[in-house]
Design a protein around this nucleic acid. Structure first.
Ligand SMILES: [Mn+2]
Ligand SMILES: [Mn+2]
Ligand SMILES: [Zn+2]
Ligand SMILES: [Zn+2]
Lengths: 146, 146
DNA sequence: AATGCAATTGAGAATCAATTACAATAATAT
DNA sequence: ATATTATTGTAATTGATTCTCAATTGCATT
């Protein structure tokens, strides 16, 4: 079975909720697919302006929750004062290792966290929705520069 | 060997850095020890006002990084738009399980994360400084209320 | 194709946590 | 005591995000 394209997923989501398909939303989504890695609202807005799109920041802020809600995008928390995002459709869930010096971000998969969720659910009677794990430190380069 | 008291730790930290020991800082620290659990700046400020202390929010914002720096306090990220804190001197490092419905926060220890840090350090050449793990879901009560 | 309704938009105002400038105060060293 | 300079409170500022509002536009129905 072939995977639906992101734009298909989004259109079906829109249709199923009496929302409207607009060029703004599709431009934003399109741009998000083309971003390799993590991004924030400012970056996304600048990239769109560079392509002569006139989408406003307000619309980006309004569109992101929709993409998150339909499983295309995820919030990433780098604890630096604003939200970052990444597209995740078809990507495995992963965690982030971030260098406090240069800001480099590496991704890794920690399989043990699935089990942990099961244990927590049993022990505390929770229905687990998800988790976020960030590890931070200094990359090799930034260690030398100290 | 007896553990130093928090106030001792702070005073030594102050002395070692040409900073000044002020009643404001010590009032704030004192209050933090008396808080059972997690708190934010507003809560802390209100509690101090209730005790007739006139410490300003600005001073709280200025003091917290000092307490964090000397290992007495930790930032806690509940991803709800502002920072939370907890005193940690003498407490084991732990993670948080948070209910998205009512905001309840449970603490748990996941010993596997120590090993994970070692692996990451080896594999990527990082010097690891720490990690944050938050799990979120719905508590038993909030599941029923759905 | 024209109509009506409600969703969406852009612009800018509002909000809110956190930071900062500034002048007054007060802690330490001499 | 005096000089030095860190710290304080107040109020202004910043920066990310949300909200307001009037104008526009998608879409279902004629
Ligand atoms: Mn990622
Ligand atoms: Mn805790
Ligand atoms: Zn680095
Ligand atoms: Zn709950």
């Amino acid at each position: 079975m072939v995977m639906k394209s992101e734009i298909q997923v989004f259109r079906e989501y829109i249709r199923g909720r009496r929302l409207r398909r607009t060029p703004e939303r599709e431009q934003i989504l399109q741009e998000i697919f083309e971003i390799h890695g993590h991004f924030d609202v400012d970056e996304l807005h600048l990239r769109l302006r560079d392509k002569a799109s006139k989408v406003s920041k307000a619309s980006i802020y309004r569109a992101l929750p929709l993409f998150i809600d339909c499983g295309l995008v995820r919030e990433v928390d780098f604890s630096d004062g604003h939200w970052h995002y990444e597209h995740i459709y078809g990507h495995a869930h992963h965690s982030h290792l971030r260098c406090l010096g240069c800001g480099e971000v590496l991704e890794f998969v920690e399989p043990g966290l699935g089990l942990l969720e099961v244990h927590l659910a049993r022990e505390y009677g929770y229905r687990i929705k998800g988790h976020q794990l960030q590890v931070h430190g200094l990359c090799a380069t930034c260690q030398e520069a100290e």
